[in-house]
Design a protein around this nucleic acid. Structure first.
Lengths: 172, 172
DNA sequence: CAGTATCCTGTCCGATACTG
DNA sequence: CAGTATCGGACAGGATACTG
């Protein structure tokens, strides 16, 4: 993923994708956040070729999502543990999980989020921290921020106008 | 993305990635949910080659995230509008946006979520709908669900045990 | 305007073999 | 156990030309 417009984009989504755009990366992160640490563990869990695993692991370390840490002197052995940045990625993973569960689990849910204390199944919603309202629904919208350049600012102005208009047919 | 283990996986994250694993898809979806509809609009916004755009658009339609809709008879013209499934993807996109803003915006936020009514900037958190507690933090964990097969169930049992153990050093 | 048709390149990925 | 080294194949993505 070395797209010209991605390198210097202002879009935070594109910036995020620079780090986790490859799907193996996300699956590895999923496992790492679940507690897996060692090369071997990842390989078994993912059924991935070792060279590919090594490559993805390295790229995740370079992106700062994982830390490569020596846990044994001789022979030297390393494990991969999520950094703060990596742990901060959890909500994205859980949102992805929830979307999958809502839409692609016709035979029932096979992986879910639970409260380890009570065993209650959680139903994740993305809300605004202050008001508690769901952020994915109106009246919330995406807008240019303080650091936006002129081009971006104009773009969102334009979008706002056209959204004020018909907002034509959403499907189904 | 036609990985053997992905086709029949039980993991909802992997299932999601089957639909949106390619990064162009996510960027297109971002624009579609922002209100873009036409081929031309996507192309300008994304600076993408037309053949690639056509390919990704088709795959998003096939995955059921976008609907191709004729808006003019002659010459026949089509536009691409998000389906219910596509709109349901919004929280994932916003979680990705928030992660990017928190971590990769040293010079300030250039795109943000705002309340269109009040203009207040939103701070998205993923919480449990019932309890309102952040789902990304303890005591919440990922666990096998009712439809999990034996293999998956065992796997999460094992993880639960090792998590009960030291839960060794998280970085930073 | 909304694409299709070609051609080409990069690299992601899979398979396999090998090593300290 | 934790990788590295090689090789090959598929396809995403880029550039460009063309069409109704």
């Amino acid at each position: 993923m070395q797209h010209k417009s991605l390198g210097n984009t202002q879009c935070p989504i594109a910036r995020s994708l620079e780090r986790v755009g490859e799907w193996w990366s996300i699956l590895i992160l999923r496992d790492a956040l679940a507690g897996l640490r060692r090369f071997d563990a990842f390989q078994q869990s993912l059924d991935i070729a070792p060279n590919i695993l090594a490559r993805r692991l390295t790229s995740l370390v370079e992106s700062g999502l994982l830390e490569r840490r020596q846990y044994q002197e001789r022979p030297p052995r390393y494990e991969y543990v999520p950094t703060a940045l990596g742990r901060d990625f959890r909500p994205v993973l859980l949102a992805l999980l929830a979307w999958g569960n809502r839409n692609f689990a016709p035979e029932g849910v096979s992986v879910q989020i639970v409260d380890a204390g009570t065993g209650a199944v959680a139903d994740p919603v993305l809300v605004d921290r202050a008001s508690g309202r769901p952020v994915a629904l109106a009246p919330f919208r995406i807008a240019a921020g303080p650091a936006a350049n002129e081009r971006l600012r104009r773009r969102y102005e334009r979008l706002e106008k056209s959204a004020a208009a018909p907002a034509a047919g959403e499907t189904r």
